[in-house]
Design a protein around this nucleic acid. Structure first.
Length: 156
DNA sequence: AGCAGGTTTAGCG
DNA sequence: CGCTAAACCTGCT
């Protein structure tokens, strides 16, 4: 089976998203690039991602294949998926929800998240602060800002 | 075994 | 407040 790669420009993040299919959605990465690249959208998740970046308040509906990860990581990511748009949860809260007494490994599992944004690991924050992000806290901050802004403009 | 994390909390200045 | 130290659990070598 052949691997497929989509690419879209994420304006709110000022970077590109490289979306791999194998054949189901397998990974998303943030690409910093100075020159302008050609976008390419072939599959449904790519279009949903574009909607998300355009400010639509959506939850991603498609399945994700997490079989390469440990059972623990899968539990963490499944739980993370339940967090609603614009909502924030702390590492320790999430840990408690899956019956784990430490917040540390939760951060570890989130760091291995193959599909950021779709599994909204940016909505998991530290108890007193924003916490870390594998792709850089800059991006995490921008994602949270995007969601807050859209919730606000949707509420008034 | 040993070590390093996207943490947390308490203890101290 | 800010800083440090140590406990926390899992995954990788």
């Amino acid at each position: 089976m052949k691997e497929l790669i989509d690419l879209i420009f994420a304006k709110p993040l000022d970077c590109y998203l490289e979306i791999r299919y194998n054949p189901g959605l397998s990974s998303i990465r943030f690409i910093q690039c100075k020159e302008e690249l050609r976008e390419r959208k072939t599959k449904k998740p790519s279009f949903e991602l574009e909607q998300y970046l355009n400010g639509e308040i959506i939850d991603f509906s498609f399945e994700i294949d997490l079989s390469g990860l440990s059972a623990f990581s899968r539990r963490v990511l499944d739980e993370t998926r339940k967090i609603k748009y614009g909502k924030k949860v702390t590492y320790s809260e999430l840990a408690k929800n899956i019956g784990c007494s430490s917040a540390r490994p939760v951060g570890g599992a989130l760091g291995n998240n193959p599909v950021p944004i779709v599994i909204p690991c940016h909505r998991v924050v530290a108890r007193n602060g924003i916490g870390g992000y594998s792709a850089g806290v800059e991006i995490k901050t921008k994602l949270l800002a995007l969601e807050e802004k859209n919730l606000r403009s949707n509420n008034l």
